[in-house]
Design a protein around this nucleic acid. Structure first.
Lengths: 138, 138
DNA sequence: AGGAGACCGGACAGAAAAGGTCCTGTTGAA
DNA sequence: TTCAACAGGACCTTTTCTGTCCGGTCTCCT
């Protein structure tokens, strides 16, 4: 259908929101997260890897290992999460790489996409895990 | 990468913008449009069919046939065009079919996506072919 | 030291969507 | 009647999405 969030992005937001419901530093295993949020565990593993590589989550290996938020929930935006998993958000190519768009200078279409993009980013940047998660459970 | 306009949508907007550059009612052939906008003709044929079925364009068959806008350029929005080709725009599923989203009632994530969607629509609804096209050539 | 539990990372694979082609109509003007 | 041009469907190729699997590594616990 086009112009839709990927499954991976959706899962990532849900997984992070889940982590945000615990006190800061709480570690949850892949299995816990997957079961709680109904996400296939082997796929979730990949997604969490991306989040760790991007510095949004930290992982703990070995027995009693798992994942936790790397920083306070209020400091992680929806945009951070989605871009970590799906790469940069660009409604169309010419917004991201203006130099590839021959008409980037005076093109009204280009400007329209840039405005749309900016509006979308406003929302995505303003929503954090603190917004999304109920207050942590003790 | 996800969350991007399809090629079809991009081509559709370009094709319609091209038509909007002529005086109202001007008919341009598939070939003309394709050459002018550098769009593969056989693919463009499909796209224009969608636009005609959606009532945004009209077609004229037979010799000297082609395509024209179905209404004045100021009355056709970017959203109209994109939805005609790619189907309804929904950043994520639960915005489009809230009943499928178990948490639609109180879910903060749901609300966030709805806001993002609304902002995007604001822009897409406000940009018309009159915005995009230089004044018609006589 | 030695398991066992849990993440790491890469290869692989099936399904779906995007992107595009082709061919056989049908229409309409000259 | 002929021919230019759209209509519509079948088909195809490539890419992306959505996962799975497995051997490796790390760390806690005993």
């Amino acid at each position: 259908m086009g112009l839709q969030l990927t499954r991976g992005g959706e899962y990532a937001v849900r997984a992070m929101t889940y982590l945000a419901r615990f006190p800061e530093g709480h570690v949850a295993s892949l299995r816990d997260i997957g079961r709680a949020q109904d996400i296939p565990e082997s796929f979730l593993a990949k997604i969490l890897q991306s989040l760790v590589r991007s510095g949004l989550a930290v992982s703990q290996r070995g027995a009693h290992g798992g994942f936790a938020l790397a920083r306070p929930a209020a400091g992680v935006t929806m945009r951070d999460i989605i871009e970590a998993v799906d790469g940069p958000i660009a409604l169309n190519q010419c917004v991201l790489w203006p130099e590839d768009c021959s008409r980037s200078g005076d093109c009204e279409l280009h400007k329209a996409w840039q405005r749309a993009q900016a509006q979308l980013m406003d929302v995505l940047d303003s929503v954090t895990l603190r917004t999304l998660a109920p207050q942590p459970v003790a």
